[in-house]
Nucleic acid binder design. Structure first.
Lengths: 198, 198
DNA sequence: ACCTGAACACCGTTCAAGT
DNA sequence: ACCTGAACACCGTTCAAGT
């Protein structure tokens, strides 16, 4: 057991998030609880509530880290800035699918929370999400000067690739008629862009 | 408390599913438990385990009913058989979005379960899902004679509309740039089909 | 044979009490 | 001031025991 003063509030905060990530990676959403996180960092359950509002708050913070991680993973696999939209989008969607596969427990957690009606995620969270969307928008930017149209297309395509990804990760791929998620995303993106370009 | 012999196994089964549906509709996935279902039908928790393998099994059966319900809701709003694919698809996607909105708790439950690796849903469940896909395939059938291509396109479009729907229901719509789910689905379908037709 | 009810091993959350 | 640990009100699941 840690004694008082051993760690600052900020340290306990960080330790708890680290431990939560490890637990989620190891056992998924199921084998993860406030009590396990607490004991993994050598503290009592009660201590967590000095540092987090509740378990949903802790999960939100974990999700924030995942969004950062995802952003960097996508950025790394992003093509050159001169790429045509199709090449750039395919690179992004493949990277997204690869991330979801490689980090499926935390990726799942990202979308599991069914928000209560009317409460949006906090600003800092939305900013992290916006940064991910930004990559998609950047890939689309050569298509048109209309910024709101780019925004709309980016959101539609991202939501769509996400839906395809869900089918794969949630093991519903038998329903995909033998296609891989990558093939499905390619079919989507190629045809959409051909139609969009007119 | 119900006395032994009051109800057959099949009756208890049905009563439990009815009660579960009511609880889910009223309180969502959160306010739903084996103990609540049992007490809602006047039995002890243990009794549920005579009729269901476990709670996941009960949820699967509830989901089966939801898939049937969804199928009929989509069928009802399906256009005429002579409709062109675009009209038919837009009708289906709008009906899908409307269903998700109207029945969001059970619709959410349909996709919450993170399947363990390698275990597919049972055959009867896949058949119910296949019936829903069948509607999408029927809408696409005028596009080409190639049955596997229709299957692939149907799955890609369905997964995509589903992803868009998720954004709306999970209250992430602030990320959709003010677009409604219906508008997003329309943007997707119109451009995809224009591209697909070449 | 059918169902109970108590037990087991867990939960999230709170908060008086200890150091 | 910081943290504990016990309490509260729950969980899913099992299974000896009652009728």
């Amino acid at each position: 057991m840690a004694r008082r003063g051993d760690h600052s509030r900020a340290e306990i905060h960080r330790m708890a998030l680290d431990a939560a990530e490890r637990l989620i990676a190891a056992e998924g959403d199921r084998g993860f609880s406030a009590r396990k996180v607490a004991s993994a960092i050598g503290y009592t359950v009660g201590t967590l509530y000095l540092v987090f509002e509740n378990l949903d708050d802790l999960v939100l913070q974990v999700n924030g880290r995942t969004l950062d991680d995802l952003f960097y993973a996508l950025q790394k696999r992003q093509g050159a800035t001169g790429d045509d939209p199709e090449t750039a989008l395919l690179a992004l969607s493949n990277a997204y699918i690869a991330y979801a596969e490689a980090e499926s427990p935390r990726w799942n957690m990202l979308f599991d929370a069914v928000a209560e009606k009317g409460d949006n995620p906090p600003d800092w969270y939305q900013q992290k999400l916006g940064r991910v969307f930004g990559l998609v928008e950047a890939a689309l930017s050569p298509l048109t000067q209309d910024a709101t149209e780019i925004q709309r297309v980016a959101r539609v395509l991202w939501a769509s690739v996400h839906g395809i990804c869900l089918l794969k990760i949630r093991q519903r791929m038998n329903l995909a008629g033998g296609q891989s998620a990558e093939d499905m995303a390619r079919l989507l993106i190629e045809n959409f862009l051909r139609g969009f370009r007119g």
